[in-house]
Nucleic acid binder design. Structure first.
Length: 274
DNA sequence: ACAATATCCTGCGAGC
DNA sequence: TGCTCGCAGGATATTG
């Protein structure tokens, strides 16, 4: 579910309240999110340590701990962190509860695709997900030259597929890919090498614009996504094509199309997007 | 080497 | 009402 803006929102909610907190206990209800570590070992290594930093890297959330270990969480489709005051009541699909003096931090995951790794802080870059991580559209590394370099690497693919590739540009998922292509007026089936100079500039600008707008609106709640306090985002009210099959394009009033690309839905306006 | 497909899991809405 | 089917925002392993 969550793409860059949603992960950024959750990560900020957590960092605002949890940095400096000591993890006094961990309750594991269901261990299926844990990767490469037993539940007992996970609990033993974390209990009693302090959270020194929390930040986003790509679509993951990283908790640095004071014992030189870090927890790396990828929410995938339905992972959620919910902060509550102590003694949160357990609900369906709660997987892990981290406890501090002030907070219960409940990790809930309906579909159980989320991943949680524990690794040495100085070995974070070695995790597979980070080895070939692409450029981040919210950071200074997202320059037009770097964008063009990545576009060249994905030149033979449809632009929709290109936008989803985390080793090129990190953070875009299925919702924002459709919205970005609509904003840049480019047909999702066009191939990377087919863009004119102006279209390259349009696409580059739209990526930045849509992602930053969505962060400002605290993400998109299509169904499951919630921020760190179980509240919905606001960007779903700004969506122009995603999940709007047969509705009218806000620009030209033609009906919105839906197609399948690499097994995933793409929404677009065939009149506006050439 | 590359690109398309299957897969993990649960819930929901559509259609019968 | 209740069943089955298809679909869902992600990434990776497997297949071709």
């Amino acid at each position: 579910m969550p793409e860059l803006p949603e992960v950024e929102t959750v990560s900020k909610d957590l960092s605002e309240h949890l940095i400096g907190e000591t993890i006094s206990d961990i309750g594991i209800i269901d261990a299926r999110n844990l990767r490469g570590i037993s539940p007992a070992n996970f609990v033993q290594q974390i209990r009693g340590t302090k959270i020194s930093n929390i930040y986003r890297k790509g679509k993951t959330i990283i908790w640095n701990l004071t014992n030189n270990l870090s927890i790396i969480i990828h929410l995938r489709m339905t992972g959620k962190f919910i902060l509550t005051n102590n003694n949160a009541e357990l609900t369906k699909h709660d997987m892990i509860v981290f406890k501090t003096k002030k907070w219960d931090i409940t990790f809930n995951d309906v579909r159980k695709f989320a991943t949680i790794n524990l690794t040495s802080t100085n070995a974070i870059e070695d995790l597979n997900y980070f080895k070939n991580i692409g450029i981040d559209p919210t950071k200074s590394e997202f320059t037009f030259d770097n964008f063009k370099y990545m576009l060249k690497k994905g030149a033979k693919k449809s632009l929709k597929a290109f936008l989803l590739e985390q080793d090129k540009i990190v953070g875009i998922g299925n919702i924002y890919a459709s919205e970005i292509l609509f904003d840049s007026k480019i047909n999702p089936e066009r191939l990377g090498y087919s863009l004119s100079k102006n279209e390259e500039i349009e696409l580059f600008s739209s990526i930045k614009k849509i992602i930053l707008q969505a962060i400002m609106m605290r993400g998109t709640t299509f169904s499951d996504y919630r921020d760190g306090f179980n509240k919905k985002g606001e960007f779903q009210n700004q969506l122009k094509v995603y999940n709007k099959l047969n509705e009218n394009c806000i620009i030209c009033k033609d009906t919105i199309n839906k197609i399948k690309q690499n097994g995933r839905s793409t929404y677009y306006c065939q009149t506006c997007q050439k």
